[in-house]
Amino acid sequence: MSIARILIVDPLSSLGRYGQLLYQAFLTLGDVRSYWKNFVQQMVSIGLESIPIIALAAAFSGMVTTVQTAYQLVSPIIPRNIIGAIVVPSMILELAAVVTGFILAGRVGARIAAELGTMRVTEQIDALEAMGLNSTGYLIVPRILAGVVMFPCLYLIAAFVGIAGGAGVGHLMGLIPITEFMEGARMFFKPFDPVFGIIKAVVFGFIITSLSCYVGYNTSGGAEGVGKATTQAAVSSCIFLLVADLLLAITFL
C-alpha cells in the first residue's frame, strides 16, 4: 500500500464516484413528481426540526462574542460601540453559517447517512432500482435540494438570533445599550456581507447533504457498516465544511 495510493489515487477515485453519483442523480431533476413528496419531508426534517437547536447555538455564540469583545477590546481609548461593530459582522460573515453548518453536519449528515445506509444494507435501494425507479433521483435529489433551500433560511435565523443574543446580553450586563450596539453595527456594515453569508450557507448545505448521501448510498457491511457510514458522514462533512469556508473567504473577501 503505497503513499501515492492513499494520498492521490483513492481520493481521486472517490471524487470520481461522488461526481458520478451526483451527475446520475441530477439527470432526474426534471422528474419532480418522483421526488416531490420526499423533498417536502426532507424540508421538514432538515429545516423545520433544526430551528430550535440552531437558534439556541446561535444565541449563545452571539452572547459569548459580545462578552469576549467587551473583555478584549473595550478600554478608555476604544469606544464601546466597537462591540456592535465586531459582533454583527462576525455573526453575519462567519459564525451564523459555521454554527449552522457544524450542527447540521452532525444532525442532518449523520441522519442522512444512517437512513440511506440502512436502505442500502437491507436491499431497499435494490428494491427501488428493481422497480425501474432511478434510486439516486428518488433518494438523493430531494435531500440535496432540501439542504440547499433550507440552509440559507437556517443561516438567516441563526444570524438574526445571534445578533439579538449578543445585543441582549450586552444590554443586560450593562456593557453596551442596544442603541449603541446597533450604531456600532452600522459603522462597518456592508450589504455584501449577508449575501456572502447566504452563498456560504448554500455551499455548506450542498456539501453536507451531498457528501452524506454519497457515504450512505455506498454503505456496505450490515449494521456495523451503517454505524461507520454515520460517523464518517458527520466527520467528513465538518472537515470539508472548514475547507470550503476558507476557500470561500479567499475567493470573495
Binding site: T122, E123, Q124, D126, A127, E129, A130, M131, G132, L133
Partner: peptide, 22 residues
C-alpha cells in the same frame, strides 16, 4: 440505464429479506 429501467418495469422482485421500505 434508462432503457434498463424500462426493462425492469416488466419485473416484480421479492427480495430474500423482503426489502420493505421501513
Amino acid at each position: 440505464y434508462d432503457e434498463l429501467r424500462m426493462v425492469r418495469r416488466n419485473f416484480g422482485v421479492l427480495f430474500q429479506g423482503g426489502a420493505l421500505f421501513d
